[in-house]
Amino acid sequence: MLRRRAELLRKIREFFAEREVLEVETPLFSHGTVTDPHLSAFSSCYGGNPEHPLYLQTSPEFAMKRLLAAGSGSIYQICKAFRNEEHGRYHNPEFTLLEWYRAGFGLDELIGETDALLGSLSEGIRPLTPSEQLDYRSAFLAHTGLDPLEASTEEFAGCAYRHGLPEAAEICGSDRPTWLDFLFSHRVQPHLGRDRFTFVRDFPAILPSLARLKPGDERLVERVEVFLDGMELGNGFFELADPQEQERRFDRDITARTAAGLPVPAKDFRLLDALEAGLPDCAGIAIGVDRLLLALHRQDSIAQTLAFPYPVA
């Protein structure tokens, strides 16, 4: 597996070298972090001063966007990312991400390039049928019978109940994003990526992350996820570049964190400054390298792809 990993990394670097995308490194340990209520960063501090916390990066996204705003052009990075309280069959709290940004690309071109990369990486390792593209709405509708944009939370609850998941009503309550996450992960995702890469695009705007609203239909955002064997491999966006909208999303996250009694990190003003200075139109995606290795070589768990998984790290 060590050799297979080395081979995969070599092929990724060749792919981007051919396309003249610049490899970069950004800090793994940084003053700022994400506000996302569903991500928990490891934190420490320099010299023992808790007033100045430092965070292990949950992804290199903010730092890479600062480079893009500074005029780097298209860039990629293969680095470690860290997420606290994420451990399981497909999660290791420290994992390897491949993240790249393409200046001038929209979501379509990004999906095309991701498909080309994944296709070249699976070649000669695992035969797959040609990839497919679905939009979130029709994938959700196909497997739950409900329209994610229109259905009421009562209808979501009814669907969960019929599928033997009555506890969902208590977990999700009247929170639409949690209902979508619940039903998508339990009822939709297991069907995605059967012996092929499945791209799911155009997410509901209530699951925006850092994606731009879709022109012409502001109920959707230009976000894509890619799946193989029912497992999510990556998440990409046509990147939000509006600093005011970015700050509103930070504030919304912070309100959610406060309500949930979670720690509230400061907004990363360096990212906001960079967006203010101007992020070029670009699309970017992050792919979990360990999971890709797992799926291509048909392993059972992420632990089998790592030299020393979390329990023995």
Partner: peptide, 13 residues
């Protein structure tokens, strides 16, 4: 058996 499930950047179960 306990399986950690996390959709994208969403709520973990």
């Amino acid at each position: 058996e306990s399986e950690f499930v996390k959709p994208g950047k969403g709520q973990a179960f």
